[in-house]
Simulated assay, not measured.
Amino acid sequence: MTKVLIIEDDNIFGDMLSLYLTEEQYDVVRVASAGEGLRTLKDYTPHVILLDLMLPDTEGINACALLREFTTIPIIVISAETKVSERIQSLSEGADDYMVKPFSMQELKARIEAVLRRTTAIQSQIVSPTPASPAADDRVLTLDLARRLLICNGTEIETTYSEFEIMKLLYNNPSKVFSREELINAIRGIDSYINERAIDVHITNLRKKIESNPKEPQYIKTVWGVGYKFMKK
């Protein structure tokens, strides 16, 4: 079942979206602020996020840019803002689509499906095995600091700003244990939305991208009660 996270503070419009998508057999969770959205991502991994830009806790901040620091999940902006400049800014800062309120629910469904088709196609290209690839347990992981790229088996892996900063710190200090607080401090330019639970989300996302089996990680190890460490092979 396709899972959708709606971040919308307008109760009437948010309930309308939730009801429609639920009736269309989507699994829906709705929250009313960007902060709640980030906390929800700890335990709920949606296939797509519907994001209102005008939220009570993002005044003066582009909500899409804020959210994109923490996740690569497809984002469809749903906004009453009609300015072309706002659309361009949101798309350039990580949105996958932009819809202006009011809009047709049928069109929303079509756009969700279109975004998911694109995402599925990209993921298939990335994970499809090739004869030349090393065995899963012999993955080669490198960092290209100049281009800010994480490379696994020769494939460039997309990361958010925060994911790369965390990976850089761990990678450059193999076997050293970092507390969550130390990892938070390593993410420069991020405001109060970053917290220990957000760090856990970043680590989970990184493991999905670099580990052959994220549930039994070989690179990023958990040190229970303390934090995380990176093991070079």
Rank of each mutant, 00 (worst) to 15 (best):
T130K: 08
P131S: 13
P131Q: 15
S133L: 13
S133T: 07
P134N: 08
A135F: 07
A136P: 04
A136M: 07
D137F: 14
D137T: 14
T142S: 13
T142C: 11
T142E: 14
L143Q: 06
L150C: 09
L150T: 00
C152G: 07
C152R: 02
C152M: 10
C152E: 02
G154N: 09
T155A: 11
T155I: 12
E156M: 11
E158Y: 11
T159G: 05
T159K: 02
Y161H: 10
Y161E: 11
S162G: 05
S162I: 04
F164R: 02
I166M: 09
I166N: 03
M167T: 06
L169G: 05
Y171Q: 09
N172L: 15
N172S: 15
N173D: 01
N173F: 06
P174D: 09
P174A: 12
S175G: 03
K176P: 03
K176M: 12
V177I: 14
S179A: 10
R180M: 11
E181N: 12
E182G: 04
E182S: 05
E182Y: 05
E182T: 02
L183C: 03
I184E: 15
N185A: 11
A186M: 03
A186K: 06
A186C: 11
I187G: 00
I187S: 02
R188C: 09
R188F: 08
G189H: 09
S192F: 01
S192G: 10
S192E: 14
S192L: 03
Y193N: 02
I194E: 01
N195A: 06
E196N: 13
E196Y: 13
R197W: 07
R197C: 04
D200H: 07
V201Q: 02
V201T: 14
H202Y: 09
H202R: 06
I203F: 01
I203Y: 00
I203V: 15
T204W: 00
N205Y: 06
L206M: 09
L206T: 10
K208A: 15
K209H: 06
I210K: 00
I210W: 00
I210T: 04
I210Q: 01
E211H: 09
S212T: 09
N213L: 12
P214D: 08
P214S: 10
Q218I: 15
Q218R: 07
Q218G: 10
Q218M: 07
Y219V: 15
Y219H: 12
I220G: 02
K221A: 03
K221M: 09
T222S: 04
V223G: 02
V223R: 04
W224G: 00
W224K: 03
G225T: 07
V226H: 14
V226T: 13
G227Y: 00
